[in-house]
Design a protein around this nucleic acid. Structure first.
Lengths: 187, 187
DNA sequence: CGGCATCAGTTGACACGTCAACCATTTCGA
DNA sequence: TCGAAATGGTTGACGTGTCAACTGATGCCG
């Protein structure tokens, strides 16, 4: 049972893995457990993935009453021709489900940051359009957001690490986003 | 206004940044915008931070009706002496607020995976204890979780990249988790 | 044309996290 | 030793995301 007393969260996951070696040999495929190096990287990554979005949300919430997701929606629209996108396209660019996007856009519309228009070409579709107020809000909010991005990530790393991070996330996204919905690399 | 048509999400954030240069020079501090390299790394990171937790949740939900956070709670308890931790300590180890943990532990207790006991030393405190059922559940669930960790992250990267990722996340956590780990409504 | 499958999007019920308020216990200073 | 403040934890209301069901429009194939 190996019940030594670990202090670090990393060890907890490891212990569960070790326990599995004992119990799971029967009906589970052999899954090689992580080395201690791999384990540290894994725990680090999931910790960052847990804490970073919360920080972004709280900064944007405080400064502009926006979710990070709200911000991304506004940002995508600000880039689009006519500042307009169909709901489906917007959902893909923000990695969101359609129901989620629908709810969010509805709230943004109530606040006057976005408006919904029927799509001329296809009566089923809806176009989301960034209003002037939405644009102004985005412009006003961007600097603080960038500052946060620098404080929490960019300025903490060396240029070399930034380059490494780009390569690593790019590799991960081939698994996490196989359909390339984020349109990061449109082949 | 520079309204060229960008295809990449990365550009969207950039545009907002550029716009800010125009409008915000008056009352905002000068925030140097991100270079294209930095921008790619940033967008990659927030994409991963958005997608990875969702994947972990859905795998664990499917296989064991557990949230990734539930899993982490069980894992931390499995490591602790007597498989027992006080709520506050558990909250720190899982980067959770106390209310969140309280709700989660209540649900886990209903399912019989955890039990709550008054703390002998301090009548205010509560001890959370992993039951045998909880241990078995964790043991049964771990292999699939490890497999997912490999498929989505570890096996996608070279050994060198894993090492780089460890260094990078370690650096980021000095900012994201500067000893806070709870301290919600202080002062 | 008629009928069926698919697509685009919305809605509502439910689950989870957050926040503020709250209670009980403990600590500490005067 | 008494009372105020701090600690440990729980609860309930509210906002947001998810899923399943639904509406309406479009496309397809006979």
């Amino acid at each position: 049972m190996t019940t030594s007393t670990y202090d670090e969260p990393a060890a907890a996951v490891a212990a569960a893995g070790r326990a599995c070696d004992v119990a799971a040999s029967a009906d589970q495929q052999d899954v090689p457990w992580l080395t201690s190096d791999q384990l540290r990287a894994w725990v680090g990554l999931i910790s960052v993935a847990e804490l970073l979005p919360a920080r972004l949300d709280s900064q944007l919430q405080r400064d502009a009453d926006l979710t990070h997701f709200d911000y991304q929606v506004l940002a995508m629209l600000s880039e689009a021709p006519e500042r307009t996108l169909r709901m489906t396209g917007l959902a893909q660019r923000t990695s969101a489900t359609l129901p989620r996007l629908s709810h969010v856009v509805k709230r943004l519309e109530v606040r006057g940051l976005v408006e919904r228009l029927p799509c001329p070409g296809d009566a089923r579709a809806t176009n989301a359009h960034l209003t002037d107020l939405g644009w102004d809000t985005l412009v006003r909010t961007a600097p603080g957001h960038v500052r946060t991005a620098r404080e929490l990530v960019i300025d903490v790393l060396t240029d070399e690490q930034v380059a490494q991070l780009e390569a690593i996330t790019s590799a991960l996204l081939t698994r996490l986003d196989p359909e390339d919905r984020l349109l990061r690399r449109n082949r």
